[in-house]
Simulated scan of single mutants.
Amino acid sequence: MIVTSETGVTLVGGAPISAQMLGLCLERAPTLVAADSGAGRALALGHRAIATIGDLDSLDPDVRARLPSDSLHPIAEQDTTDFAKVLRSVEAPFLLGIGFTGALLDHTLVALSTLAAHKGAPCVLVSDHEVIIHAPRSLSLNLPLGTRVSLYPLWPVTGRSRGLEWPIEGLTLGPQNQLGTSNRVIARDVHLEFDAPGTLVFLPPEMLDAALAGLGISARSPGVGGL
């Protein structure tokens, strides 16, 4: 491990991020680690990562010069993304990843696949538009009525739901089957069960704390949904 933290860790990637969302992540996961060019994104918003991890081929020379040399941790192999390199190099109770979605579509798709394949500490991807979690086999969420909940399985899965307007029981969800986008909450206590891993759950960004609570994470925050 390159970084070991007793608190949650915010991972920052190279895609555009806002000061507000980075600040909200750091309130909940105050240790900041950058994936390659994410170090420059953080510096531009007034934050310096304690470690920068990746192949470092996208790290601007001016940014590199502003970082302590002992905070740079190059991993030269090209078989995995910088997001994957950071995930396997950080040990923490939970991880928030910001700056890994929303720029190049292929990078976003790879980040989603990496999230689903990750087997370590719970990780939530965060952007100005949504929060994304890889659902465990059983997931309970406390959400306001009318909240948009999108389910996107990366491969065929079956399951059951309670509290959603359109139940998923009896359906095979998958990229080439029926999808579960833009469902809605009709009861505050939403419960999802899946017969296999691989389903991503998309929620509005203001549901970050609800997503963390659903994963069993107690973060430093003002409360469920409190963005």
Rank of each mutant, 00 (worst) to 15 (best):
A187F: 14
W166I: 11
L215I: 08
S140Y: 06
T108N: 04
T81L: 10
P175N: 05
I2R: 12
V201Q: 00
A103M: 10
V201M: 07
L24M: 12
L112H: 14
G174S: 10
F100L: 10
T80N: 06
V33H: 03
V3E: 00
T7D: 15
E165H: 15
L203T: 03
A211I: 02
F202V: 08
D195C: 06
L26E: 09
D209K: 05
R137K: 13
P205V: 08
G54D: 05
I132R: 02
R66W: 00
E206Q: 13
P153H: 07
V224C: 14
L173F: 01
V9R: 08
Q78A: 13
L104M: 08
G13C: 08
G225C: 11
T4L: 01
A121S: 15
W155L: 04
S37P: 01
D55N: 12
P61F: 10
P197E: 01
L45H: 13
S89C: 13
D209R: 02
V190F: 04
L87H: 11
L203R: 09
L145V: 14
R88F: 07
A35K: 08
L105Y: 14
D57W: 01
L200S: 10
L105G: 14
V126T: 12
R48I: 07
V3P: 09
L26T: 10
A65Y: 01
A121L: 02
L32T: 07
T172H: 07
G99M: 11
A135D: 09
L87I: 01
E169Q: 15
G8V: 06
L22M: 13
L212W: 03
S127H: 08
P144Y: 05
G174D: 06
I168G: 06
G97I: 09
A116E: 11
S89V: 12
P136Y: 01
Y152W: 14
V149C: 11
P93W: 04
T31I: 12
L96P: 11
S138K: 13
A44T: 12
G120C: 07
G8K: 03
R220Y: 00
V157G: 02
L109E: 09
A92N: 03
A19Q: 14
E27I: 04
D195E: 15
G225A: 11
H47F: 13
L154H: 04
G23I: 07
L227I: 14
S69K: 15
G38D: 09
A213G: 00
S150R: 11
T199L: 02
P175D: 01
E193N: 06
L164I: 00
R137Y: 04
H129A: 15
V190K: 02
D60T: 05
H129R: 15
R220M: 06
S127D: 05
E77M: 07
G13H: 04
D36P: 09
G40N: 08
E130V: 09
L141W: 02
A196H: 13
R160C: 13
L95S: 10
P175K: 02
T52V: 15
W155E: 04
S182Q: 12
V33S: 10
L72K: 10
H129C: 12
G23M: 05
S138M: 12
I2F: 05
A65H: 05
A219C: 13
E193G: 12
N177K: 14
F202D: 07
L154D: 05
V9K: 08
L215A: 06
P68H: 03
H191L: 12
G13M: 07
L67Y: 10
